[in-house]
Amino acid sequence: MLAFRIVILAAFAVAAIAFPRAAIAAEESCPGLVARRGLPIVPASLAADAVQLTYIGHSTFLFETPSGVRIATDYNDFVRPRTTPDVVTMNRAHSTHYSDNPEPGIKRILRGWDPAGGPARHDVQFGDVRIRNVVTNIRQWGGETTLRDGNSIFVFEAADLCIAHLGHLHHTLTPEHLKQLGRIDVLLVPVDGSYTLDLDGMMEVIASINPRIAIPMHFFGLSTLDRFLARAEGQGFTVERRPTPTLTLSRTSLPPTPRVLALPGR
């Protein structure tokens, strides 16, 4: 059973924050947002305009859509949801981001790299959620060699929300990356500052995407998380520490200015 839900209220009294946004045509909408339009909604415990998000730990989150579709990010053998997801995404930087032994009940497995070589290409409609990816490069473990197309930023479009998981991001984003991403409402951000992108670079990525909510992940203890939160506060973000790992998100309840929400992971 997932932890009780916390509804993000729309009325946040915060100072205006001006972050630069890339001049892209897709700014006003998430490209091809078709999730749940024209699709029957199976009765579920969520409202039709809400998505539930639970931070499981490391880089793994569990989403539940209004029709009850469950999705796990960076699914691996070490940190898993207690319930079997319908769909999983994976990345390949380390074994804590993928699994060669997924649970048999999983209906769809989306790898952020193509084992045959070249970029992975995903644009999948599963129930009331659309899942697509934007490929990036990674550094080879133990060296400076670049592995092209080794990581995917997965974008989940459901209930008129666009949620992006940066995966094991190793570099800042180009205008083409930002164009492919389009409008992102909620951004899941690796904040370790070493294995992925350094903190200066990651803050640049957050500013360029300009989400309404940024949620840190991939941190190693509270000291690593605290370092990121201090940096975010220093750059004008309102920072909240939530006591439970579960949020209920809806487009109407997004804060009016960018905000960082830190969730505890098990």
Rank of each mutant, 00 (worst) to 15 (best):
F12S: 11
V14E: 12
A16W: 01
A18P: 06
A18I: 11
A25D: 08
A26V: 05
C30D: 02
A35G: 08
A35I: 01
R36Q: 12
G38Q: 07
V42H: 08
P43N: 06
S45R: 14
S45G: 09
D49G: 08
D49F: 04
I56C: 04
T60K: 03
F63E: 01
E64R: 10
T65Y: 00
S67P: 04
R70S: 06
T73D: 03
D74K: 07
D77S: 04
D86L: 01
A120N: 04
D123A: 03
R130I: 02
R132T: 05
N133A: 11
N133C: 12
V134Q: 02
V134H: 00
N137W: 04
D149P: 02
S152V: 00
F154R: 05
V155H: 09
A158P: 02
D160N: 14
D160V: 10
I163C: 11
H165F: 09
L169T: 15
H170M: 12
K179V: 15
R183H: 15
L187Y: 07
L188G: 02
P190F: 02
T196M: 08
L197Y: 12
L199D: 12
M203I: 01
I206N: 13
I213H: 12
F220A: 14
T224K: 08
R227E: 15
L229P: 00
R231G: 13
A232T: 00
Q235M: 15
E240R: 15
T244D: 09
P245H: 00
L247R: 03
P258A: 11
P258G: 06
R259D: 10
R259G: 08
P264I: 00
P264F: 02
